[in-house]
Design a protein around this nucleic acid. Structure first.
Lengths: 190, 190
DNA sequence: TACTTCCAATTGAATGTTCATTCGGTCGGC
DNA sequence: GCCGACCGAATGAACATTCAATTGGAAGTA
């Protein structure tokens, strides 16, 4: 079992899928077990409790998000291009993985989140921080707290991905570029 | 019982408060009853089920948000001033009513939300739409789908209010003005 | 006023169901 | 024959919902 025992992974993936559709409630362990093709007891071989399962799933999924962020980044690009590349790759990740987006949204606003399982060294947060800090230092961005810029930019990505998922509004390349540009023009030194 | 039977209102308010702290799960009807100072059975005199209670609470709270939006608006102001006034009043409403914000976030990403209890004529949505549509017509804003502008602006408010609620980042008047300005500068025709 | 109906509002114990979790036991490789 | 992975029926707790019983006040009656 090098990366992640097959069963354990199946349990995590099944939970992710079921939570998207039914929420935390509405997703009994028995359902997770059936979907993952294991016995209920097996889940408890890998996770102490439902809460731990949810929290581990959070870490698991967050790492995938970090991977998507890094994969879309290229430090050699001009700063503005990097901004748009990162914006688009995170957006693409979320619309390709709607269950991740939905899970995050539910997790963040749930009691499970009180456990500071993840406050340790939040890599995602750090990456964004460093990126925006550098933009300010190099004179591309306005001198606003980089944390705020990071949260704002990420917020716009999430919001846009949710709008896309709702399906009521046309969201083609044109619209995406418009949105990312609004952010860029607002944050950059003109 | 003209506006809302006292008990009914107490039940709604208690639910709002408890959901903020414990989430939908973690908030049994018995707890709502105790907090509201009524018997469990009484809740069922006013609401058919827990689901209906949650959905009615959503309408109830949404109306309060609409009121806040309208109270902060003043059609006589110059357009840009209106933008900042609306931004600030909604932001202020959310930070003064963190339980509302928290409830919304939970509700939107929950199975309760599938019931299109509210898609009828979404006044909040309409108000934002009209506001941004007018901005485009009058040449203040870029010609981007007003729905998108509305969602983006509202998203920035929500995001900022959540950041404030988390308490990790300093959020004074200076920061708020910076954030609202980023939005305005991005959306407006320069 | 005094007395009687009537019914909505209210109660909270009882019900039945739905889970999370447990545990005694099976299985297969070493 | 040892052990970890795995199974799934059994357990007990938590919960949404029900309902038979109580209350109190409004309206009717004389």
């Amino acid at each position: 079992m090098e990366p992640l025992a097959e069963k354990k992974k199946a349990i995590l993936e099944s939970t992710l899928e079921l939570v998207k559709e039914n929420g935390f409630h509405g997703t009994p362990m028995s359902m997770v077990a059936k979907e993952a093709g294991v016995a209920a007891g097996t889940i408890y071989h890998y996770f102490d409790s439902k809460e731990r399962l949810i929290c581990e799933l959070y870490s698991y999924v967050k790492q995938r998000t970090i991977d998507a962020l890094q994969a879309g980044d290229n430090e050699d690009l001009p700063y503005q291009d990097r901004f748009f590349a990162i914006w688009m790759s995170l957006y693409t990740f979320y619309i390709k993985n709607p269950n991740v987006l939905r899970f995050f949204e539910q997790f963040v606003n749930s009691p499970y989140n009180t456990n500071k399982v993840e406050v340790r060294h939040d890599e995602f947060h750090s990456l964004l921080y460093l990126f925006f800090e550098k933009g300010i230092e190099q004179g591309h961005l306005r001198p606003v707290n980089p944390e705020i810029l990071g949260v704002l930019a990420h917020g716009s990505i999430i919001t846009t991905a949710k709008v896309y998922g709702r399906g009521k509004i046309q969201m083609g390349d044109v619209e995406l570029k418009q949105i990312a540009r609004i952010l860029w023009d607002g944050m950059s030194v003109r």
